[in-house]
């Protein structure tokens, strides 16, 4: 009797260990995908930041050029005699 009880316990432990390994495998898959997702989000952040920085630089340059043009146009409109001659 005791011998049969020992075998069933061993089978139950084996089943529990297998289930545990399956659960660990699942969790590892989930964590791996979450890390991939995190890496993707980090890459996206970096690319988006670089794009935004480039865009910001272009907008700054355009803003300066527009200010320059505004000053020139204001100078010309302030002295219309330059165009009447």
């Amino acid at each position: 009797m005791a011998r049969a009880g020992g075998i069933t316990n061993a089978v139950n432990v084996g089943i529990a260990v297998q289930a545990d390994w399956e659960n660990r495998e699942f969790i590892s898959h989930i964590s791996l995908n979450v890390r991939r997702l995190f890496d993707f989000l980090l890459q996206f952040e970096s690319t988006t930041k670089s794009k935004l920085a480039n865009l910001n630089e272009k907008l700054d340059l355009l803003e300066r050029r527009l200010e320059m043009l505004e000053v020139q146009v204001a100078t010309v409109t302030a002295n219309p005699s330059l165009f009447t001659n």
Binding site: I30, N33, V34, L37, F40, L41, F44, T47, T48, K51, L52, N54, L55, K58, L59, L61, L62
Partner: peptide, 30 residues
């Protein structure tokens, strides 16, 4: 997880599209 990836994928695509549009607009303005 799949839903989150879908959400992030769509948002990143939209953000990329919006950024490209703004860059093109800036180029035209330039």
């Amino acid at each position: 997880l799949v839903n989150t990836v879908d959400h992030l994928g769509s948002i990143t695509y939209k953000v990329n599209d919006l950024l490209d549009a703004k860059v093109d607009e800036v180029s035209r303005t330039e």
